[in-house]
Design a protein around this nucleic acid. Sequence first.
DNA 1: TCCAATTTGCAACAGAATTGCAATGTTTTT
DNA 2: AAAAACATTGCAATTCTGTTGCAAATTGGA
Lengths: 142, 142
Amino acid sequence: MPIDELAKLRLILKNQGHQITKAREATFRLLLHSEPQSLNEILMKADGQVDRVTIYRNIDLFEKLGIAHRIYIGWKYKIELSDEFTGHHHHLSCLRCGKVIDIEDETHIDEFIQDVAKKFGFQPRRHQFEVDGYCQDCQSNE
Amino acid sequence: MPIDELAKLRLILKNQGHQITKAREATFRLLLHSEPQSLNEILMKADGQVDRVTIYRNIDLFEKLGIAHRIYIGWKYKIELSDEFTGHHHHLSCLRCGKVIDIEDETHIDEFIQDVAKKFGFQPRRHQFEVDGYCQDCQSNE
DNA sequence: TCCAATTTGCAACAGAATTGCAATGTTTTT
DNA sequence: AAAAACATTGCAATTCTGTTGCAAATTGGA
């Protein structure tokens, strides 16, 4: 029984006092079940169904509501749905072919954050961890 | 006896077949002994000594040669000289006051990267790790 | 269904980064 | 040390990315 992701979206919007609109659902669908995408890729896929500006605005809103967030891969950022929809994870991104591998083990990272936070009296809120390199396929013909 | 950073720069440029120019040295000096800076901050500091475009181009070159690199803090990116000049490290950045704390212990992170890389046959080249949260001073009056 | 409030799309704008090219500076060769 | 060969710079113009103002359309609630 797959959870209805759209229902979740509607719930979040409603609970936070925002309207449920076609454009928002469409924007959400552009992100759903997809690798992290650049804004440009998203705009391409949208191709006029939803206006450029509206997509920007709705993704901003999604970020504010914690529905989506940016990750930084190589030079650029990409958008992906947030932990609630995809589970918290990090990425290995290939510098050559651009492939993105999701990685999930948090143990080491959490440990590390705890250590460091304690040392500096810092209160961590979120973290970002990205590894760039070459994927199996791209190592030979690098 | 402090290492002459400029000499190091010249060596790298020369070895890779690039010219040593006033503009490149000036651009380098803008980065030296400084917190990570936004491109804008760099352009301000440069203030016409070196042309905007030239700074863009030289920082690109520095990135390609591994002399400098971008880090992402909050939404924006900043430029800093790379490990060879500053030592590899990560950052705790305060979401409220913007303060950046450098952190250095790598043990946990390196371990983790080794584990994961092995699992996926991935060849890591560089990694990025940023923690956002609230620094000691900003926790009370958050 | 009607009204108030929010959201959307368009057009215009602003800022960041890139490109083409002539002028300049750097390196190599003699 | 001068000339030739090549790389780099600065400027103007352009492209790309993201934002703003506002009228028209859509949404949610009575």
